[in-house]
Amino acid sequence: MIETRLGDFEETVMLIVGILGEKEAYAFRISKAFEQRTGRAISIGAVHSTLDRLETKGFVKSVLKQATSDRGERKKRIFRITALGRRVLKESMDFKVELWKSYPEFAGKFSITGLN
């Protein structure tokens, strides 16, 4: 069995980091994007805490940049997925696809488009 070392919420947050890209991936934006996509409210602190954990695991990296006026000229902590992070994401997806494929009811009838 493959150990993904990645929780469900962590995975979602990482994916959103990837989606938002170099300019937008900081805690406030990520939490807003999460809320928009899932419809669930989440505190910035909760997102930040997950990001901090991911950073310790080495899946993301953060840098401070881009102070803007709407935040009192304070810098943003922009997160970026590392190579290791990308690999873990991929492994996680592969593992799940593998599981889906061996699900007898769906075996063969179920295709995941655009991913393999």
Binding site: F28, I44, D70, G72, K76
Partner: peptide, 30 residues
């Protein structure tokens, strides 16, 4: 720096979308 910034930005966002009271309340919550 960044957390204070994020929360300030969130406050501005709430201010625009749902009003002063909610913005302040949400700031405290955050």
């Amino acid at each position: 720096e960044d957390v204070a910034g994020d929360l300030a930005e969130n406050f501005e966002y709430d201010l625009r979308h749902s009003g002063v009271f909610h913005a302040k309340f949400n700031y405290w919550k955050q």
